[in-house]
Amino acid sequence: MILERSFLFVPGDRPERFTKAVGAGADRVIIDLEDAVLPDAKEAARDHIANWASSSEAKEIAVRVNAIDTVWNSDDLRLVASLPNIVAVILPKAESRKTVEAVAARLQRRQQLIALVETSLGYVDRLDLARSRGLSRLAFGSVDFCSETGIRGLGSELDPVRIELVITSAATGLPPPIDGVTLEVKNADLLAADIERARRLGCGGKLCIHPAQVAAVNEGFSPTSDEIDWAKRIIAAASASGAVTVDGKLVDKPVLDQARKILAASGRDAAST
């Protein structure tokens, strides 16, 4: 399965944007019921999602529900569990294994559950959180994390947190985590730098707040042509007997595994290369 790279938020109380969002090229559109929707608009937003989901324009989407300790969470979960084209649920303020598993138990079996790590408690308990039954992936809620902790800056200031989420995901068998948003939607240079940093640190995708960010995220988290060419040569060389070198370096199991991951991410079948 090819890993999803780009996750585009669209407010749940703006139904006129739903269809446009799913046409923006993101791997996954997230209709938001949490931060983007004011309290008095929550119920209407759920109705908008239900109506759109039953229309001819409906596509597979994700929904970010409200946190489990809010008055809206139960109704949000009831909605997403009733709609077959909601294929993933984003849980904000994920802080404990108990919470994540309680939410997972209310979802359809085919629905993925992505936990947003965006509080200090969620970060501190990240290993136990990542071991939750029913959890599909971790994502980094960097803006809320900075707001709580007082860390000033969404860039290199947060690299230790990103690295820990990457290591935690690897240790628990989860896919690489999803990096947080870039707030300056018109700053292409900043977006490119954020993408390059996140990918170098081991993240596998990024949250987007504007359609203009999607193409750069998709490209930035996809293997380059040079990486694909290298991976193909590694796979080809590995079929030979005895010790194998490529570009003067020994091809051992970790190198072969890396090559297979690159080809998988590019949508290619290593076995047929």
Rank of each mutant, 00 (worst) to 15 (best):
A240Q: 10
D194G: 02
K59Q: 15
A36E: 03
A45M: 08
V217C: 10
W52K: 01
V89C: 07
S241G: 01
D226K: 13
G134C: 04
E60D: 14
V71I: 14
A265C: 06
H210F: 11
R162V: 08
S6Q: 00
C208S: 03
L174Y: 13
D194R: 03
F7N: 00
I49N: 02
E227Y: 10
D35I: 06
F7A: 06
V87M: 15
I235D: 03
D32N: 07
R137C: 13
W230P: 00
M1W: 11
V117W: 10
F140T: 04
N218Y: 13
N187T: 09
L207G: 11
L158E: 08
V37H: 08
E60K: 05
G12Y: 00
F7Y: 10
T149I: 12
L83H: 00
L107S: 06
A36H: 07
T70G: 03
L207A: 05
K253E: 15
L191A: 15
E118F: 09
P177A: 14
A94Q: 02
L83Q: 11
A264K: 07
F18C: 03
D159F: 11
D75W: 00
A50M: 04
V185K: 04
H210R: 00
L121C: 05
L79W: 09
D35W: 04
L183N: 07
A41M: 11
A265L: 08
A265M: 08
L154Q: 04
R197I: 02
L158I: 12
L135V: 06
R5T: 05
L207S: 05
D13T: 04
A88M: 10
R109T: 09
G150M: 01
V251R: 00
R28M: 15
V214F: 01
D247Q: 15
T99E: 04
D35N: 15
L154C: 12
E118W: 11
A88G: 11
C203S: 12
A58Y: 03
I68Q: 03
P177V: 03
A188W: 06
D194Q: 09
A115C: 14
V117G: 05
V65E: 01
E118T: 14
K98R: 12
N85L: 06
F18A: 08
A271K: 11
G204A: 14
K249S: 08
A58R: 01
S54N: 13
M1Q: 13
L190I: 13
R126D: 12
H210N: 13
K261M: 12
N73P: 07
S6V: 11
A50V: 10
G155T: 06
T273L: 13
L127N: 02
